[in-house]
């Protein structure tokens, strides 16, 4: 479904991605694990059209996304839930939920879908008329996920769904993502800083650090976590090659 081929992204002089390649097959749950600043968010933003790659290709079902506007990519069925809960704070919960439905062709189905999503998130139904800015962090996280689901995506990109949330709420968020995948054949690409929860759910895992993919594999093969730990913290050979590269960059 999604094929990222050797993309490079820079913010000014800072090179955020230094050649990332990964694939996501239809129906898969793929997880990108890595420390803060590794390039996870940038990777998702690049797919969603929020940042432009200076080199490399991103293909969605074979179509190169270079130069495509974010709204056009959204209309192709890709929805990004960015890090940091970007709710529209002065809009009500109901309005937040509707924003993403205006582009849909099946406008008739929207009301029923909103009903269905509210059944998944009863908390949101209670707060339906409040400004989204007044919701708690957990409620806001639910709102952005509900809002993304209402765009009827085929590929959902979720940036750190567990950041700053209580474990119980994180479990709830994952339950809903898994449920949506089962019901609607959703494909998921998820970023996380820590691997222990995602290992249970993901099909495949990429460990990303310092703008590079350090490790890729099936979640089942990496289940003991040792290889991930090494790749994540950069012990061994990966570390020395990295050091060289930083000198090159300087």
């Amino acid at each position: 479904m999604l094929a990222i081929d050797d993309i490079h992204v820079s913010y000014g002089r800072l090179r955020a991605l230094k050649g990332i390649s990964l694939t996501v097959a239809k129906g898969e749950i793929v997880c990108l694990i890595g420390p803060n600043g590794a390039g996870k968010s940038t990777t998702l933003a690049a797919v969603a059209g929020g940042v432009a790659a200076t080199k490399g290709h991103i293909r969605l079902e074979g179509k190169d996304l270079a130069g495509t506007r974010p709204e056009a990519i959204a209309r192709m069925g890709v929805s990004l839930v960015p890090e940091g809960r970007h709710v529209f704070g002065t809009l009500s919960v109901a309005e937040n939920l509707r924003v993403g439905t205006y582009m849909r062709a099946d406008r008739g189905a929207v009301a029923a879908d909103i009903e269905r999503v509210l059944a998944m998130f009863p908390r949101l139904r209670e707060r339906i008329a409040s400004p989204a800015g007044r919701l708690s962090g957990g409620e806001q996280q639910m709102l952005v996920i509900a809002r993304a689901l209402l765009t009827k995506p085929r590929l959902l990109l979720v940036d750190e769904p567990s950041l700053g949330l209580a474990p119980k709420i994180v479990d709830q968020v994952y339950e809903i993502l898994l449920e949506a995948r089962k019901q609607e054949g959703l494909t998921l690409l998820i970023n996380e800083q820590s691997s222990h929860r995602i290992l249970k759910h993901a099909d495949r895992i990429y460990v990303i650090r310092n703008g590079h993919i350090q490790l890729a594999g099936a979640a089942a093969d990496l289940a003991d976590g040792e290889a991930i730990k090494r790749a994540y913290f950069g012990f061994g050979e990966a570390a020395s090659s990295d050091a060289n590269e930083e000198e090159d960059a300087a």
Partner: peptide, 24 residues
Amino acid sequence: TPYGVMMRAAAEDFRMAQYLGVRG
């Protein structure tokens, strides 16, 4: 109106509105 809601959303967080398919 839908366009009004889109405009308010875009005024608040332009990029997020685009991610939700609002034509910038």
